[in-house]
Amino acid sequence: MINKRGSRRNLMIAELKTLLNTRWTFIVLGAYALFSYGVFFSEGFRQIWVQVLDGNLLTTMFNLYMPTFLFIVVLLSAAPIFAGDKKNGMEELGDTCFYGKTVRRKAKVEAMVLYTFLVTIAGFFITAMMSLVSKSPLNLANRAFEATTSDVVMSNGLFYLFCFAMILLGLLVVTSVVVLSSSKSDDVIVPLASGILIYGVELALYLKPVAKILWDINLFRMLRPYTMLLISLYFDSTAKAIVASVIIFSLLSVGLFALTINNRSRVKTERVLSSQST
């Protein structure tokens, strides 16, 4: 595809622009900016609503609050990506185009991955800016969670990078589940409910550790990165638990994205049946 306007990259950028322009992105990120403004600038707000972690506001925001807002943004943007098209009757129209089905699906998935990355950066950027403007001490060189006895020791600066990587991976897993669900359904509620269900199940498994392995390799822990440093129930060290989580969740999200892109069984079957009857 060398045509500039019809290239795959162009298609992906068009999808990305659509995602970035959704009102939910602005509403939720705006709500987060407002919330973080309250946290960094208002002592009263902080005392009533915020539970400070490790005596550090930036750590608190990155671990306890920002991931929830980012989860909501990703969920609301990913849910209608395929299901919305089906509802409007655009799915089959797209399929009739020369570069329709697979290329368009690929472009949508790529756009969603890039969107997740950009939204994560936006979340970190907003928080960091609030912290800098409010002149809260960053203490980047200090050890993160000094009071704990974790076998993974890192400075605050390195810990923030770790948070970024874990949150991004966690959000990509959410995205992969929601996007796959969206490609299988024609109602937006289904992918939305799937995302919430996954999050709820992981939260319940975190709060009630009925199976140690499911507690260690847990999506909720990915979205609360500090919990990954503190303790491991199944593995003999937290480092092993982190590595196992990263490998399993990376494979899972890649697998789910691949399934979404190659999801053409229904239409294919219908076409085969139709030609047989003819």
Partner: peptide, 8 residues
């Protein structure tokens, strides 16, 4: 006007 907004 959309299920998404209503559910959310």
């Amino acid at each position: 006007r959309s299920n998404l907004a209503s559910f959310f």
